[in-house]
Design a protein around this nucleic acid. Structure first.
Length: 141
DNA sequence: GCCAACGTTGGC
DNA sequence: GCCAACGTTGGC
C-alpha cells in the first residue's frame, strides 16, 4: 500500500477540522496542481497519509485515511480537478516538524524536504516508518 | 512581509 | 514549441 502526505494550512483547514468531520471524512478539495491531482488519482481506499500543517506549525500532526477514491472536486469549475475523501485516524504522539525532517539523514530524499510546494505528496514506506519513529508512535483520536 | 521556487499562461 | 511574464505557495 502506498503512503501519502497531505498539506494544509491549519488556519484554513487543520487536522482538528478533519477530526470534526468524523468517520465520513471530507473531500480534499481545492487542489489545482496536476502533480498533486495525479497523486490523488493513484490513491486507493484504505491507504493512509500524513497530515502536515504548513505555514503555522510546519509539522506532521496526524494520520488520515482515504475513504473515497478520486472524483471531481465539487468546488472546482472544471471537472478535470479531482480529489479524494479522507478521514482522520490518529494523532502523532509528538508532531514531527519540518526541521526534524530536515535534520534526519534518512529523510534526505523526502518530497516534503525537497519540494515544499507540492501539496499532495507520495511518501515511501521507509520514510513513513522514520516519521512514525520520530513521532514516538501514534495515539487514538 | 519578503522572496525564492515552481507552475501556468500566452505571445510569438 | 519556446520562453518571458505572471501568479501562487510556503519557508524564512
Amino acid at each position: 500500500m502506498a503512503c501519502w502526505l497531505f498539506k494544509s494550512e491549519p488556519d484554513v483547514f487543520g487536522f482538528d477540522d478533519l477530526i470534526a468531520k468524523g468517520a465520513a471524512g471530507e473531500q480534499w478539495d481545492g487542489v489545482r496542481n496536476y502533480q498533486a491531482r495525479n497523486n490523488m488519482r493513484a490513491m486507493k481506499v484504505g491507504e493512509r497519509g500524513f497530515f502536515y500543517h504548513s505555514n503555522v506549525g510546519k509539522e506532521v500532526v496526524g494520520i488520515c485515511e482515504v475513504v473515497a477514491e478520486a472524483h471531481p472536486d465539487s468546488t472546482a469549475e472544471d471537472p478535470k480537478w479531482e480529489c479524494v475523501d479522507v478521514k482522520a485516524v490518529a494523532r502523532l504522539v509528538t508532531p514531527v516538524t519540518l526541521d526534524d525532517a530536515k535534520a534526519e539523514p534518512r529523510l534526505r530524499d523526502m518530497v516534503l524536504v525537497n519540494n515544499s510546494r507540492l501539496s499532495v505528496q507520495p511518501v515511501s514506506d521507509a520514510e513513513w516508518d522514520v516519521i512514525l519513529e520520530l513521532a514516538g508512535g501514534t495515539r487514538p483520536l
